[in-house]
Design a protein around this nucleic acid. Structure first.
Lengths: 107, 107
DNA sequence: TTCAGTACCTTGCCATACAAGGTATTACAA
DNA sequence: TTGTAATACCTTGTATGGCAAGGTACTGAA
């Protein structure tokens, strides 16, 4: 568990958090994620996403399973692991903290 | 004006935004900033802050003036320039966008 | 069997957070 | 007057990570 590191990363980017929020509801493969984030007004590039997913997988926060597609090669569907769920809870807390910080500074 | 770039930086970090929010109200020198951000629950290191301030200065978003101190060497008080004010408005918008994104993803 | 579409991944570059270390000015006490 | 502590500003080196560009592999249809 490297939430300290993740937390410090959060200052650098909301991306990781947003992706894990997405996966909280349902397994997704890369293009799913890109499209859904786009719908939520956040742009993410392939070259950013794939390394990020690999990293989260390597850190044990995500797992994946292959699923057949009717329209091309099989897809890697990523899922939150139990560790991932827990890390996400901590990220939720970090997000609340950022919210507080910004609200204080906006006064 | 490189708000596109700043906007993309924002995904990486809230720091720049928070510092400019601080300076919206009043001129501050480095230790002021560190302390006030700390009070707002955001930690920032000297080695992060000084280059960041120099960068914002170089980009014309901040200016500074020297002020005497009763307790040591003179201090560099940073102020938002007009360009800085405008950039900050755009960062406000980006922040709202992130808020929307997270709220959508949290549903 | 070739080509377009889809999907996954890597490489190289650049920006930046951070730790650590360095320099300069000031105040104060010996 | 000199030395020392406190304050303040800044730089260097390292690691991380976003992004553009390019590459590989599988699938299905012309």
């Amino acid at each position: 568990m490297n939430t300290d590191n993740t937390k410090s990363q959060m200052r650098k980017g909301m991306l990781e958090y947003c992706i894990m929020l997405l996966l909280r509801h349902q397994p997704c493969y890369a293009n799913d994620i890109i499209q859904r984030l786009h719908e939520a007004e956040m742009i993410v590039m392939e070259g950013t996403l794939y390394p990020l997913l690999s990293r989260l997988k390597r850190d044990g926060l995500l797992g994946y399973e292959w699923r057949e597609s009717t329209q091309g090669p099989p897809r890697k569907y990523y899922v939150l692991t139990d560790d991932g769920q827990e890390a996400l809870s901590q990220l939720d807390a970090s997000w609340e903290e950022i919210l507080r910080t910004v609200n204080i500074l906006k006064q």
